[in-house]
Design a binder for these strands. Structure first.
Lengths: 83, 83
DNA sequence: ACAATTTATGATCCAGGGGTCATATGCGGT
DNA sequence: ACCGCATATGACCCCTGGATCATAAATTGT
């Protein structure tokens, strides 16, 4: 699954989805990532202003990766989840 | 060009590279993105703690995109720039 | 419907980010 | 070596994110 992320809300969705896919509770993810459960809740719900490092911690714990590329020109291949 | 981003430093490199590729000065990028030149300087040099929104602003101005995917298992295809 | 677990909300505190301005340092061109 | 633009640094203030704790609300299982 590939998530195009343009907003905090997008990111929140991607993280929640990945967490659910691994059957983790926020609390579990919290203890694996070092990010508080309350903070995870806010992030998953797209509350903005999150710090990059916090995101990196979650991404790492969820075994995801972030890539930055040139914006795809043509028609997107339709397989991404774009929130 | 594809940048795997795990740290603020990675992000900084990706942004600087994209800016250079478009022949923009930090000041120009600043006025196009609404992010201060001084802040861009810090981000490009990998100073941590940046807020997500700031990054999104820069990414958008540079016509880049961020994607979140499952961490690639096997051998990376060797074509990415991994800082 | 209830109990237990999970998630959200609310408040407090503190550190640090980013806006802002001034200035210093760096660097390309001649 | 000098000049001008580019980038970096430093200081200040304000605001907000995240740690932390308590608790409310929602969800899940039986």
């Amino acid at each position: 699954m590939k998530h195009l992320v343009r907003t905090s809300k997008n990111l929140g969705h991607a993280i929640r989805q990945a967490r659910k896919a691994k059957n983790l509770t926020q609390k579990e993810l919290a203890s694996m990532s070092g990010v508080w459960q309350e903070t995870i809740s806010k992030i998953e719900n797209g509350s903005g202003g999150t710090k990059l490092e916090t995101v990196f911690d979650l991404i790492a714990a969820l075994e995801l990766e972030i890539t930055v590329t040139e914006r795809s020109k043509g028609t997107p291949d339709g397989l991404e989840d774009i929130f």
